[in-house]
Design a protein around this nucleic acid. Sequence first.
DNA 1: ATGCCCGGAACGTCCGGA
Length: 257
Amino acid sequence: MKIASWNVNSIKARLPNVVAWLKEAAPDVALLQELKTVEDGFPFMEIEELGYNCAVAGQKSYNGVAVLSKFPMEIETKVLPGDDEDEQARYLEAFTNGVRVASIYLPNGNPTPGPKYDYKLAWMRRLVDHARELLEHDEVVVLGGDYNVCPTDADVHDPIGWADDALCLPQSRAHFRELLWLGYTEAFRTLHPHEQRAWSFWDYQGGAWQRDLGVRIDHLLLSPLAADRLTACEIDRGPRAQEKASDHTPIWCELED
DNA sequence: ATGCCCGGAACGTCCGGA
């Protein structure tokens, strides 16, 4: 079972790229982030034609997440528990083919300090609480998406220059590690402990892609029962090299049957 | 010398992204 995640930076602007990627990479489940549209604007027809069921949590202009699956799928929740006032579409949890999956678009948090960073940390605390509850059921769980966290300095092309960025600050990393201490396995670094320059995002500005100046902020976190089945995890740079690319590129993992 | 983009909303630039 191949599960992929991709921050597409607008599903409408990226539809040709997404269709080509789904045909080429053919994930069984795809977690998408930053749709930048309400649910009515999601291209259900074009993606269902490729054999996917679609679950969408949309929002005008900003955020928005989706789960696509080639298997029957039930939506578990479209909100991250813990704050009834939070109206940002950053979380969608579904159950498909025996796996509980979540598409996560964790807040960026810049500039720091400030209310946006406070929101990021509060959102991460809610995610930790929810992720802890999910482990109580002994399920195969995959929490994937744009975490907007570089877990270590090895995940940043310029650790010194990025030290004060919300993606790298100690508090951001500490909350990310809390997910790991709960028992979640970060798929990529577990299978590739020494791989360098394994970025998942390159800024549009300054020729960052051409100069390979990136960061690794898109992650797949696996519950113990999911990690038991992990056989592969890779970052697919192909889509980032295409015309009209997203600034993120997809990551994927394989869970053996 | 020294890299200033991209999408959405909206139609003039500004916000958000990371």
